[in-house]
Design a protein around this nucleic acid. Structure first.
Lengths: 268, 268
DNA sequence: CGTAGGCTTGATTCTTGTCAACCGCGGTGG
DNA sequence: CCACCGCGGTTGACAAGAATCAAGCCTACG
């Protein structure tokens, strides 16, 4: 049971009226009670604003706090001595960052904004309390971490064995699924306010091929772009180009076995 | 405080007489008591053998159990429709796999052996009990997962922004540090029984450039190879080629703050 | 002794990077 | 109000790096 190509897409089991995107994302992983949802609302009630193209956390420094992205797009990235930049992860609304902060010494990469970003900082104590008292939320966070790993591994596959066309096709689909998981998509379209240089930095490409292939996809009728909103017209075609036929995002809901585990935790 | 280039390499805080490589690895992350170490010995006492070039777990099927690699080299990998293979992770002695098994539905990749492998399977119940009763081991596993993530992110950087030379140089160093962390290195050399095709599958390269660049490194005096043991003669040179100057492996020990957290857990 | 797999190497092709120029838009300042 | 400027998108020409193709060699193994 996964959100992705095929049945299930666009119909999360969670009601769409969950305003908090973080909550919405986590509810894909574990059944959250109303109390859990209220708790998460309170947890992410703080607000912090950053302009575009600014570092939130710098490589080498100890992470100051956990945070959840509420609006805008941020990235984990690393600069190389030769001036190159590699974007490792896109952080979109609903994504959390440094949940493990209390075990971290120094950052091995920076986190920066691509667009203006609004985040909810969460203190270490709040995280500890959450892990101690909210088993369902903890389990959802745990599983969310697994999803992050799966996405990262998929990125390795992309960069290692797909050509430029396949990488772009895959990224476009991945972002569609991720935005869909937090209800930020209109069926097949979503806002992607990134420059082609930024896409290239995530894909291991330079802006020139990114531009050419996006044009090719546009001409082929696979996608349409206007005013920073991307419209995925032919997702199956893109998947074929990317060379895969399944969803590897692990956005699936909890299995009955897992639910049993949650209940045991809460009872104890 | 990290194992890696610079001070600290080859002098883990853990006595080298810890026979169990899993224990040895985990003790880098958290201070394990003698009782913890005995517990881990018991946990990994079972033995299962696999020949080379065999799948331990197949993509699409639910993971059967957690396991720890005790001997040999395994990989997480994915086959692509065009026949290409991407190796995502090398699993070397001391590495664990699917610690999160109880939350997993279906594998998004396969796990296979490159050499004959000996593993210790661990049941779900054993893992649950460990998480419930062994806070220090749990914390070490948690941190170990963070290291796995850091390694994956570094792989993304490699595949995305380093050329063939840089990728190979980096991998050689990474493996040196990882083998050093489990005491499987003679100062600067370690056994790397991989074919050039397998290296290429991890590096996003074909065997031909792998061969040529290894030869180049040999001629330059950066490395030496004989009988599957690799000798890193000039690690700094390789790091320069890879274009980095720090350790990103997060092999560091626990900070005092973290230790405090362990103690709180144990007291409670 | 023969074979298969892996290593090595050369020649060639193709993808992507690099360099360079132009366009169009939005913001800024005169 | 308009000219200027800078950034991002677009496009072409060219170069470089890796893939591909192909062949020979060596070693382990049956």
């Amino acid at each position: 049971m996964s959100i992705g190509p095929g049945p299930g897409l666009g119909s999360p089991r969670t009601p769409l009226d969950i305003a908090n995107l973080f909550t919405r994302k986590l509810s894909h992983f574990a059944p959250l009670s109303a109390s859990d949802q209220d708790y998460l609302d309170a947890l992410t009630s703080a607000d912090e604003h950053y302009p575009a193209d600014v570092d939130i956390m710098k490589e080498g420094s100890p992470p100051s706090s956990v945070f959840v992205v509420k609006e805008g797009i941020a990235v984990r990235y690393r600069m190389l001595p030769d001036g190159g930049r590699q974007i490792m992860t896109f952080l979109i609304p609903g994504d959390s960052c440094n949940i493990h902060v209390f075990l971290r010494s120094a950052m091995t990469h920076s986190i920066g904004t691509l667009t203006p970003v609004r985040i909810a900082p969460i203190s270490r104590d709040q995280m500890m309390e959450t892990f101690a008292n909210r088993p369902r939320i903890s389990a959802a966070l745990w599983w969310s971490g697994l999803q992050e790993m799966a996405i990262l591994r998929e990125r390795v596959v992309s960069l290692g064995r797909r050509d430029a066309r396949g990488r772009i096709a895959y990224l476009l689909c991945e972002m569609l699924w991720r935005f869909a998981a937090v209800g930020q998509t209109n069926g097949k379209s979503y806002r992607l306010p990134l420059t082609q240089t930024e896409l290239g930095d995530a894909l291991g490409l330079t802006p020139v091929p990114v531009n050419r292939i996006l044009k090719e996809f546009r001409l082929a009728g696979f996608i349409a772009m206007e005013r920073q909103v991307l419209n995925v017209l032919d997702c199956p075609a893109l998947q074929t180009i990317a060379g895969f036929d399944e969803s590897y995002l692990e956005l699936g809901g909890a299995s009955s076995e897992v639910e049993h585990y949650f209940n045991a935790l809460e009872a104890g």
